[in-house]
Write a protein that binds this DNA or RNA. Sequence first.
DNA 1: CCGAAAATAT
DNA 2: AATATTTTCG
Length: 311
Amino acid sequence: MREEDSNWFAKWEEELPSPEELMPLSQTLITPDLALAFDIRNPPPNHNRQSTPPPPQLPQTTAHSSQPNSSAEFDSAELGGSGGGGDGGVAGVGGGMGSDEPARTLKRPRLVWTPQLHKRFVDAVAHLGIKNAVPKTIMQLMSVDGLTRENVASHLQKYRLYLKRVQGISNNGSGGVGGNNVSADPTDHLFASSPVPAHFLHPGRPNSDHFLPFMPVATMQQHHQMAAVVGPGPHHHPQLQQQFRHFGTSPPNGQFEHPFLRPSQQQVQRMGAPVHSNNGSVAPPLYVKDLESPRAGNGRKVLTLFPTGDD
DNA sequence: CCGAAAATAT
DNA sequence: AATATTTTCG
């Protein structure tokens, strides 16, 4: 029953192109409203955590700030035929949101790090170099709307552990190096989906670098796929849980993706110092291809932000 | 601000 | 129960 992840996973493995890692990074992501459409998490009746201070990047654009409530119906662009399950599924979690809840102090839902997003992360780190690969820089370089330093920092930590893990693996017969070999840890799945820059292991060696075969963006299909908020907030009240079961597709492919695409806005945060990568490669704006496949099914309030793409 | 650890939620 | 993510402490 959990073999379902192998779907996209396997697909991505094959998709892992080489030049992609050195490819330019540019990310736009998550729609403003949606991304920040924070909703509620399930805070226990205890003290409320965090006060959600004024986020520096609140796209309070001029006007419409759609409230997070309600499901955002996005046109499901083209979905696969697999079932059409497109179901816009986002749960409108009814509950009580909708009218009350000052959407002002919202909390960000759990961020789902999808392989694509992780790749962006790795790319940024690779371009930055372990030296400058600090949360702030990475976050800025990623330009992922909705991504926060804390998010990156947290993930960075995990990523480092993963690297350490693969490093320590010297007896693993896999032999394959360079991309992903490692044995099979559950946590490795996520990291394994993203190629690991070879030189991530030695900081003291700014060399080795990689070749930069600048490959033109040949295949850039415009698939849209982005943030998707799913999940009802079941534990808010011990009463009934409104769960939305959105069946839809559970075929061998089971790809429930909510294709959304919104012109994400790129927020340029000011960085005091320009980020230079070790290999001196800048990051020219380019299109990125990514795919997202969040897991839905029951009530999970997660926000998976993502750009688009895919083969 | 970064790094790691602890806590919490899924 | 394990894992992922968030949050807090150093």
